[in-house]
């Protein structure tokens, strides 16, 4: 006799789509369908982002797209450090501020044009940030997170206290980007190039070494890998991205000040990454393109904007830590169906 009553046990089974299996790894592409399967998502992303500025109704929204690009890059840097190197850097604003202040100083004190200041700020700022963070490389996760969170806060208070670089007023009347088209079509290609370059990097051998570091630093040491060196390399990459955005933003507004070190620039990228899907690199970028315009809509309501994205961040990290992109990838690559157990 069947004694068991109540709901039947069932579980969700996931199977890779045949197309996915055929197109990945060592197999050669054999049909247009397979090529399309691989290319379609990438092309959609590239074309979508390139067309986006054209669709914006007015200058305000075109600027929003530029700022979204900035946050996209910051989210990318956060995701790369957190999920491929294991450095949870809660201080994205540090990179932003360092890059912004360097470009501001070069521009206002030395009168360098912005074609020179932005690259200079990117490289010099990245070196500077890496040196600043290098004593923290041996720290374990939580301690690294706390110390990086404090860096930008300390930087802004020190600038305030010393009253240097314009103090609380900041440096005004800096060169601005020539026009909005130049602004949007400089940030979006940089974003796309950084995205695909990082995606390539993490599958290269050196990327595997970085992921090894994240998984198990002791074993990496025993394999003759210098942890400090590779953490420094990856921090350099991430901070170069961050410093570029800082320099770019300063020239977008023509102003550099302590708000470059604001908590916004640290927390929003984290929110975008968590919402978009940590560890996918694309996810955080898309997360930024969803989150930033949404928060812009709330800007007139003052700090409600911050409440909104903080709650969204807390909600996603607690209830849906996989994020949107991981979900989307699963739907694209796999069948799902219920099987009875």
């Amino acid at each position: 006799m069947l004694t068991q009553v109540g709901p039947r046990e069932r579980r969700k089974e996931r199977l890779d789509r045949g197309l996915k299996v055929r197109t990945e790894g060592i197999y050669a592409l054999s049909s247009g369908k397979e090529a399309l399967y691989l290319l379609a998502p990438r092309l959609t992303l590239i074309l979508g982002l390139l067309i986006l500025p054209l669709l914006m109704p007015n200058l305000y929204w075109q600027r929003v797209i530029c700022i979204t690009g900035v946050f996209g890059l910051l989210s990318l840097a956060f995701d790369f450090l957190a999920n491929y190197v294991g450095l949870i850097c809660l201080g994205g604003a540090l990179f932003m501020g360092v890059g912004g202040y360097i470009t501001g100083i070069l521009n206002s004190l030395f009168g360098m044009p912005l074609v020179a200041t932005i690259p200079a700020a990117t490289v010099v700022g990245a070196v500077f940030s890496t040196v600043l963070l290098s004593p923290c490389f041996p720290l374990r996760g939580i301690y690294f997170a706390i110390v990086t969170l404090m860096y930008p806060l300390a930087a802004s208070r020190i600038i305030e206290a010393l009253d240097i670089f314009g103090g609380t007023e900041g440096m005004a009347d800096l060169d601005t980007l020539p026009n909005i088209w130049f602004a949007s079509y400089s940030i979006i290609p940089v974003l796309l190039v950084s995205l695909f370059a990082l995606r390539r990097l993490v599958t290269e051998d050196i990327g595997l070494v970085l992921r090894g570091l994240k998984d198990n630093d002791q074993a990496a040491k025993a394999s003759g890998i210098s942890i400090t060196r590779y953490k420094a390399y990856s921090t350099f990459i991430a901070s170069a991205i961050g410093c570029f955005t800082g320099a770019y933003l300063v020239h977008l507004y023509g102003w550099a000040g302590i708000s470059l070190f604001a908590l916004d620039f640290s927390i929003l990228p984290i929110a975008a990454s968590v919402i978009g899907g940590m560890g996918t690199l694309v996810g955080p970028v898309l997360g930024a393109f969803i989150l930033i315009p949404l928060t812009e809509l709330l800007r007139e309501l003052g700090t409600l904007r911050i409440v909104f994205y903080s709650l969204l961040l807390a909600g996603f990290i607690v209830f849906n830590p996989e994020g949107l992109m991981t979900y989307a990838q699963r739907k694209y690559h796999q069948f799902e169906h219920w099987v009875e157990v």
Partner: peptide, 29 residues
Amino acid sequence: ITRTFQIMRPYHSLSAFKNLIVPLYSPRV
């Protein structure tokens, strides 16, 4: 001089052969 660990320490998110890329990338090799 290399060692194994008593508590095994694989790079758990990498596939088995990719685990070996890390030592193969060391300056020695």
